[in-house]
Design a binder for these strands. Structure first.
Length: 350
RNA sequence: UGGUUUAUAUUG
C-alpha cells in the first residue's frame, strides 16, 4: 500500500496523473488501497489537471473508506469546484470537512469567497469574510484582493475601494495585485485618469509595478483611444527592464485596430514575429477582426490559415465573421471553401 | 519550494 501510494504521490506531483490513475487500478485489482496522503495527492493532481469528475469519484471513495483528508486536499477540491462554477458543492465540501474535524484555514476561506463571489453570491462571500474573523482566521492580503476583485467585477467599485481602505487601516500593506485589481476596476469603468493617478500612488507607496500593471494601464489607454500615452507606457516598461509580453502587444494591437489604424497594428504584429514573444491565438484573433472590419477580408483569411499552421485554433465566431464577410462581398466560393476548411479542421459550425 | 487572488481578442 505504502509503496503504491508513494508512487501515486510522485506521479501526481510531476503531472503524470493519468499514470497515477493506472496504478490505482492495479492496486484495486490486488485488493490494496491508498494511504491518506496518496488520496490527497491524487485528488489534487486530478483537480489541477481539470479532471474534476474523476476527482469527485476519488473523493467519494475516500469518504466511504473513512479516510481523513488534509486541509490542502480540501482546498484543491474546493478550488476546482469553484472554477467549475459549483459553489453549492463547494459549500457542501466545506461543511463536510468540518464534520470530519478538519479546520478550515485562510486558504479555504479565500477559495470559498472567490467561488461564491464569482458565481452571483456576493452577499454570501461577504458574510464569509465576516465569519472567518469570528472563527479566529484573519483575512490576509489575498483575501482582501479577492474581495476587491469580486466587488469591482460586479459593478461595485466604490464598495471595493472601501475594502482597500480597510486593509490599510488593519495594517495589511496592499501589494502589486491589490493595485492591479483596482486599476482593472477603474479601467472597466473607463476611469482612465483615476487609474493613472493610482499608478502613481502605488509607486509613491514603494510598490513596484509589474507587467500586469503595465498591461492593465496600456489596455485602459488603448480602449480610450489614447495610443500615444499607451506607447509611452510601453517604452517605460522596457526602460524598467521588462520585456513586453503578449498582453502588452495584444492590448496595443487591439487599440490600433479599434481606432482604424490596422496598419500600425500589423507593424506590431510583425515586430512580435521578430521578437521572443511570438503572436498567440489572441493576437491572430485581434488582427483577423481588425482586418475584416477594414474590408481586408482576404488578408484576414490568410492570417486565419497562418494561425492554424502555427498550431492555434480559430474560434467558431472567427469563422462566422470571415464567412459572413466573404459572402456579403459576393465571394461565395471562398466562403464555402472556408466553411469546408473549418469542418476539416474539426470545428463544428453553430 | 504540495493549495487560493489581478491584465489582452470573439460574429450572428
Amino acid at each position: 500500500d505504502i509503496l503504491y501510494s508513494s508512487l501515486v504521490r510522485v506521479l501526481c506531483k510531476s503531472g503524470r496523473v493519468h499514470e497515477a490513475c493506472n496504478y490505482l487500478e492495479v492496486m484495486r485489482s490486488q485488493g490494496l488501497s491508498l494511504t491518506p496522503t496518496g488520496y490527497g495527492s491524487l485528488l489534487c493532481g486530478l483537480c489541477k489537471s481539470n479532471h474534476l469528475q474523476e476527482a469527485l469519484l476519488v473523493f467519494e471513495e475516500a469518504e466511504k473508506a473513512g479516510v481523513c483528508l488534509d486541509v490542502f486536499t480540501y482546498s484543491c477540491l474546493m478550488d476546482a469546484l469553484g472554477k467549475a462554477g459549483k459553489p453549492a458543492k463547494s459549500l457542501e465540501v466545506f461543511d463536510y470537512m468540518q464534520k470530519t474535524g478538519c479546520m478550515p484555514d485562510v486558504v479555504i476561506y479565500n477559495v470559498l469567497i472567490s467561488c461564491l463571489g464569482r458565481h452571483g453570491r456576493v452577499e454570501g462571500a461577504l458574510e464569509l469574510f465576516e465569519t472567518m474573523g469570528t472563527k479566529g482566521i484573519m483575512p490576509d492580503c489575498r483575501t482582501y484582493n479577492i474581495v476587491i476583485d469580486v466587488l469591482s467585477s460586479c459593478g461595485k467599485f466604490e464598495k471595493a475601494y472601501l475594502f482597500f481602505g480597510m486593509m490599510k487601516r488593519r495594517k495589511h500593506a496592499p501589494d502589486v495585485v491589490t493595485y492591479n485589481t483596482l486599476l482593472n476596476g477603474l479601467k472597466k469603468l473607463g476611469r482612465t485618469d483615476e487609474a493613472y493617478e493610482l499608478f502613481e500612488e502605488m509607486q509613491e507607496n514603494k510598490c513596484a509595478p509589474d507587467l500586469t500593471t503595465f498591461g492593465t494601464l496600456i489596455d485602459a489607454l488603448a480602449k480610450a483611444g489614447r495610443m500615444d500615452d499607451a506607447e509611452e507606457l510601453s517604452s517605460s516598461l522596457v526602460k524598467m527592464g521588462y520585456a513586453p509580453n503578449s498582453y502588452i502587444y495584444n492590448a496595443l494591437i487591439s487599440g490600433y485596430c479599434k481606432c482604424a489604424h490596422v496598419d500600425k497594428g500589423y507593424e506590431l504584429f510583425q515586430e512580435m514575429m521578430r521578437s521572443d514573444c511570438i503572436p498567440d491565438a489572441v493576437t491572430y484573433t485581434i488582427m483577423i477582426i481588425g482586418l475584416t472590419k477594414q474590408g481586408q477580408t482576404s488578408m484576414a483569411v490568410e492570417l486565419c490559415q497562418e494561425m492554424v499552421n502555427k498550431g492555434h485554433t480559430p474560434s467558431v465566431s472567427i469563422y462566422n465573421l470571415l464567412i459572413r464577410s466573404l459572402s456579403s462581398a459576393g465571394q461565395v466560393e471562398q466562403a464555402y471553401s472556408l466553411f469546408k476548411d473549418m469542418i476539416a479542421r474539426g470545428c463544428s459550425p453553430d
